[in-house]
Design a protein around this nucleic acid. Sequence first.
DNA 1: CTGATTTAGTTTCATATGTAACTATTTGGC
DNA 2: GCCAAATAGTTACATATGAAACTAAATCAG
Lengths: 155, 155
Amino acid sequence: MADTPDHPRLRLREFLPYRLSVLSNTISRRIAEIYDREFGLTIWQWRVMAVTGDTPGISATEIGQRTAMDKVAVSRAVAGLIELGYLERKSSDEDGRRSQLYLTRIGQSVYEQIVPLAQSEERILTAVLTPEERTELTRLMEKLAAAASPGGPLW
Amino acid sequence: MADTPDHPRLRLREFLPYRLSVLSNTISRRIAEIYDREFGLTIWQWRVMAVTGDTPGISATEIGQRTAMDKVAVSRAVAGLIELGYLERKSSDEDGRRSQLYLTRIGQSVYEQIVPLAQSEERILTAVLTPEERTELTRLMEKLAAAASPGGPLW
DNA sequence: CTGATTTAGTTTCATATGTAACTATTTGGC
DNA sequence: GCCAAATAGTTACATATGAAACTAAATCAG
């Protein structure tokens, strides 16, 4: 009896939330480092570039929904990108509160470098998995995400 | 041709580092909220409790290694736990720089509540997976961790 | 032994982040 | 139309975090 009820133990290394956090942080740090070095972008700015490139004219609120960022983070990332000259903002005609965001010419060219670089990073990382394993990982992560997010079994 | 080379797109939702980050943050937030509410502990303090309970007399440096925390974070978490009366520090006899950390009586009782609570959280979360899926998830995460960390194929 | 180097841990400082308050605009009840 | 409530986004403030400098103790070369 290595583990009696009166001597509870927790092996952190086997604790899923811990393992997920360490893995995610390791990968995020790698990526953050690359985007900072290559383009002077933070992860948040990079996410905003990604969705704005994908959907020109998108609003800050929509960006928040698509990137899992809160509105303050979006606001700051957008401000930084405008500062860098990668993004421009027009105020919507129908709704004066809403802003419409577009990549500038320079922003577009950065975007076009960013996307293949991201894809290549992902490819290198997932190269250790077979295609079936990748599919399976996605499936398992989706199950967990559904369980962990509001609306899941614990809420 | 929905995706020609001259119009690269990146669907953030399908981008593994993004999905991992969102999943990890969702789970971490849930847990952080519980530990804060129940015991007034941060995630870092909680991790320190976990390894100190597991290995009484452990040093701050060792805690850092086991918890993937840097030494500043460990130092702050330990200071907070001593403040709370959950931890006590003795200076090592053999090495005056090294501290030896122990749970206090109260800390021990908190630890004994913390562990089952963590295990129960994990069980609830992973209840959406079959035992085989849990094993598989662990295996896939380990492969990714090996690829992403220093020493992996990209370093 | 003695001074240079390394190591454990803390403190400092600059930056990042989250919450709440705020501004501007729109919407909806009447 | 007009005021109350809701919404988009920004700003301010308080706290968290990380890098680098620092302190104290141990080790190592000579």
